[in-house]
Write a protein that binds this DNA or RNA. Structure first.
Lengths: 338, 338
DNA sequence: CTGAAAGCGCTAACAC
DNA sequence: GTGTTAGCGCTTTCAG
């Protein structure tokens, strides 16, 4: 049985309140008393009981981060940055993996969680906006990605459509004319894929290039293997593309692998762009040109938004806010050559 | 103010205990009563208060996972597997990043945490065994990696020394004679690096190859950039190696990048082995030969060990257990060629 | 099968 | 400056 406040109080010969004061760094404690209490604390190895504190005070000091899967480098990097940012607010981060399943995402958002959290940062994959109109009761949430959600949630995102457009314009600027896209998704709920596809189409027409639906390859998930398979399908065509825009870096890395396997030169014969700017792409061969979303900044903003919400009077809460984060193009060997 | 048990009780016209029974799935509740209570629960949107539950029952349903950094793919993959395994026990996982700093690792282990957890899975990097003799009071811990810890902690690990030896023997079996090592560490606390180095040396002598200290390159951390720099140093020598064993995959991928940059053929001129078998290595060019530790199994075992500890009577706790997990060699292009 | 009441460890009024 | 006391929301004896 771990020692409680009253054990410490007994040993120090003071009241429980005085111990509490010392523990919480209250100012008005006589130095002698403080010392005696501290001694007792150390001797007994006293640690405040987090559950009791929370029951009383209402806050757990824990925020949840819900994301599809830590195994995907982009989300792992994001999670790392979130944990770092949370530290500055003395928060600990709890991880919920949704595997991109609608059901699990729904549960999270509707507050069906077993554990007390002060806030939620949510990176949805499959979340259909409509059926989730009623937000989680009480706990503030910030959404990563475009606003597909019509509850009282803040969100921070880059402009996916514009970013995808930039990538395609870069490819077109290189003189590429048959630009394929890898990463379309069947389910209409895959908002990210839809936005990137929209950007791709917009940029194409803007550059005076025809839209050829057969150059758009759908994938089941955004993994290397999917990218590799999609690229193989593209190469099997009579008229293969001279460039590919992949909706994330993993797809691009998989595509490059297929290209090199088949002896196709990158970028000479086929240029490749990715999206996310994960570490892998900076050391792959060839290094990967990609859209860089400044993930560290996204993480910091998300955590800070949560902090603001927790600081404000719930009665006069500000309206949901949307923060746009700038993206940049990282141009490397997979489009520029060496 | 969220509704409590008593609100539900009032609405259903029963006592607080009956509601509690329904919530906890007690058997002996009259069907009619149950229905009425359930109706009230739904109407009010009642959710049990986790803090109060824990205060009463003692368990939080949360385990902590302490690791150096989610940004490193191996740890991200590990974390993903741990979260998955924890789900099967209805646990949520809370992440603590130590950045490999001794101070932070020490704090974690000595129980200086703000949040209530039922157990801890700890992947130490810099932890010096000696100064940490007294384990965390109460909460069970399982250590990932060799036993450098002399408190009451279980641990699960692969045999690093043997695994490193296997890697080097593979290289020697290919006819390589000047086998370098990248990943030695200055601090004596870096146990993993030491074990892999020991395996390297043992295998070398076993194969009748001389040990040349100048072929062992130390690094600050196990990142791609470090591997790239180390490889560059190796290539600048008068007599560069014909093979490199890197202490993890990131170092290996960095090394390969340098090799290709300099026009050195892999594996023809220099063969490269890594360690960890992260996803990246399966799609890199060339694909990476590596030691595969079966991370999913490690994660599952770690969580199950924790579960056992939590299930047992603390009075008659079993002695600390050590679980060895088998490793395998994944041989790919970076040593075998295409 | 259901109700009443005690108390988990802590904090915050409020006395002294 | 320090002590007393009343709950936070829940589970759990113990009665009925």
């Amino acid at each position: 049985m771990p020692p409680g406040l009253k054990d410490v109080a007994a040993r120090a010969g003071v009241s429980i309140k005085t111990v509490s004061n010392v523990v919480n760094g209250y100012v008005h404690v006589a130095p002698g008393t403080r010392a005696r209490v501290q001694e007792a604390i150390d001797a007994l190895g006293y640690r405040p009981n987090a559950a009791a504190r929370q029951l009383r005070g209402g806050r757990s000091g824990v925020i949840a981060l819900a994301l599809p899967e830590l195994q995907m480098p982009y989300f792992a990097e994001l999670a790392g940055f979130i944990v770092q940012a949370a530290e500055r607010h003395a928060w600990t981060v709890l991880i919920d993996q949704t595997d991109g399943q609608v059901e699990r995402e729904r549960n999270l958002v509707s507050g069906l969680r077993r554990h007390a959290i002060d806030g939620l940062i949510f990176s949805p994959l499959a979340l259909a906006g409509g059926d989730l109109a009623r937000g989680e009761a009480g706990t503030p949430m910030v959404l990563l990605g475009e606003r597909v959600w019509h509850g009282p949630a803040d969100h921070v995102a880059i402009d996916n459509t514009a970013a995808a457009g930039d990538a395609v314009r870069h490819l077109a600027g290189l003189g590429r004319r048959r630009i394929a896209a890898i990463g379309a998704q069947a389910q209409s709920s895959a908002i990210t894929a839809h936005q990137r596809l929209a950007g791709y189409r917009a940029a194409l027409s803007e550059c005076g290039l025809p839209y050829d639906a057969s150059l758009v390859v759908a994938v089941d998930s955004f993994r290397r293997a999917d990218g590799a398979a999609a690229m193989a399908a593209l190469l099997d065509r009579a008229d293969p593309p001279d460039a590919v825009f992949c909706f994330n870096d993993l797809l691009a890395l998989g595509a490059i692998r297929t290209l090199l396997d088949r002896g196709v030169a990158v970028p000479d014969e086929v240029a490749v762009m990715g999206f996310d700017d994960i570490e892998d792409g900076r050391f792959s061969s060839p290094t990967l040109s990609t859209v860089s979303p400044d993930t560290a900044r996204i993480a910091r903003l998300a955590v800070d938004l949560l902090a603001e919400r927790l600081g404000e009077d719930p009665a006069e809460a500000a309206a949901p806010r949307e923060l746009k984060v700038k993206h940049t193009l990282m141009l490397r060997e997979s489009t520029l050559g060496r």
